[in-house]
Amino acid sequence: MRNVTLTEVYSHPIAQKYLQRSGLAHAIAVTCHAYKLAVKYGVNPDLATKAALLHDIGHYEWYTDGEWDYEKYKENDIHAIKGAERAHKLLIRLGENPQSAKEIALAILLHTDSYLPEGSLNQSTLQKVVRLADEMDEEPGGGHHYRKINEVTALKTIQKLDEKIDRLPNSSLKESV
């Protein structure tokens, strides 16, 4: 039994604010990829889809002279840190299991290495699934953040994912630690 559905997360005003800023179409696409990868690799799809949906909610818009500055973003961005914090706070507020909220936040924190020092990390399978799902939807120059999706379509997609997750055996929803 899940404490919080993906639809509840998606519909919250805080999620809506930051999903719109970072690219709703990208968030939805990454969420769909994460579901498929979670099933494939035996990861809790509830945690994977929530982390994927919220993975970019920490984005700050980097502009120079009123124009999006992708190079400035790549050089200065720490969105995964801010996003992990925002996601954790939102999930706890919604009533998510604290351990699940922490796992989701850590997957968001580690979905990109753009701000990390050189070297390799030993990531959990959940963290790898979220990173791979994000990479599957990337476009050159950050174009994936600017694609559009109809909000009705986005909500229906999220609701369908909730239905798929609810139909899975409970063993698929165990903690992914």
Rank of each mutant, 00 (worst) to 15 (best):
T5N: 11
E8S: 10
S11W: 00
P13S: 07
Y18M: 01
Q20T: 11
S22G: 13
A25R: 04
H26T: 13
A27T: 00
A29S: 11
A29M: 05
V30I: 02
V30Q: 01
A34M: 05
A34I: 09
K36Y: 03
V39Y: 08
K40M: 13
Y41T: 10
A48K: 11
A51P: 10
L53I: 13
D56S: 03
G58N: 11
T64P: 02
E67D: 07
E71Y: 09
Y73K: 07
I78R: 00
H79E: 02
I81E: 01
G83R: 00
A87F: 11
L94C: 11
L94Y: 00
G95N: 07
Q99L: 10
Q99I: 01
I104V: 15
A105E: 14
A107H: 02
A107M: 05
H111K: 09
T112F: 07
T112P: 07
T112S: 15
S114K: 13
Y115H: 10
L116R: 11
P117E: 12
G119Y: 05
S120F: 06
S120C: 05
L121D: 07
Q123F: 05
K128Y: 07
A133Q: 06
D134R: 02
E135H: 09
P140N: 10
H144Q: 14
Y146F: 15
E151Y: 07
E151H: 12
T153H: 07
A154F: 01
K156C: 12
K160H: 10
I165F: 10
L168K: 14
P169S: 12
S172Y: 04
E175P: 06
V177H: 13
V177C: 09
